[in-house]
Design a protein around this nucleic acid. Structure first.
Length: 192
DNA sequence: TTCGTGATAGAG
DNA sequence: TCTATCACGAAG
């Protein structure tokens, strides 16, 4: 079976399901391609760590956009964060946290100023720098443009690990971080 | 372990 | 206007 672009229907479900199924999928961004090895799910309701809990603009974003839209924001005065809107059975976001670089590696190395492949996209701030993702991509539809989308081979099953989300203080106990088991490209190693 | 950096939102 | 806070990363 051939690799296919992930369509809008995929994102019309709930954040946990989408997060799990994005592990092992490809993120295609211009010249660059990486395998998604780490994500986190955020729920629009009852999740104190999600932007929707404190930020009216995040709630307005959900109203205004279709499932599969890019939600990008600037954090700590330094880093861009890439999220995908999930809107359907339950609303929320999936934060893309780490990639295993596959194509366009020379370009990623140049943008990052780093050669080691394990350090190119091993963190949410790193991968946006490696792929040159900024606020100009905010609200972009990631379900129509084959140069900015997700892709996977239907029917493929990956071995996942679920554990706690990283770097948050509220609602910190949910096991809503998902990683590809054994991956060497994670932002933070899975706690044993 | 520390520190930088800037957008956001709520309080004053 | 001022301030707290933040889904991070690099250096030391």
């Amino acid at each position: 079976m051939k690799r296919q672009m992930i369509g809008r229907r995929f994102f019309r479900r709930d954040p946990l399901t989408c997060a799990r199924e994005l592990i092992g999928a490809e993120l295609i961004w211009g010249e660059c391609v990486g395998i998604i090895v780490e994500v986190e799910a955020y729920a629009a309701l009852n999740d104190e760590a999600a932007h929707t809990f404190t930020r009216p603009t995040a709630r307005a974003f959900i109203e205004r956009n279709k499932p599969g839209a890019a939600y990008i924001y600037f954090n700590y005065g330094v880093h861009w964060m890439l999220n995908v809107l999930v809107k359907g059975e339950e609303n929320g976001f999936v934060l893309i946290r780490a990639l295993e670089p596959r194509r366009g590696i020379a370009l990623m190395q140049k943008r990052r100023g780093v050669v080691d492949a394990r350090k190119l996209c091993s963190g949410p701030g790193k991968l946006t720098q490696a792929l040159d993702i900024t606020d100009r991509h905010h609200e972009m539809d990631l379900c129509t443009d084959p140069r900015h989308c997700f892709a996977r081979t239907p029917g493929t099953i990956f071995d996942l690990v679920a554990d706690k989300r990283i770097g948050i203080t509220r609602s910190a106990d949910h096991p809503w971080r998902f990683t590809l088991r054994g991956s060497q490209f994670l932002s933070v190693p899975v706690k044993l």
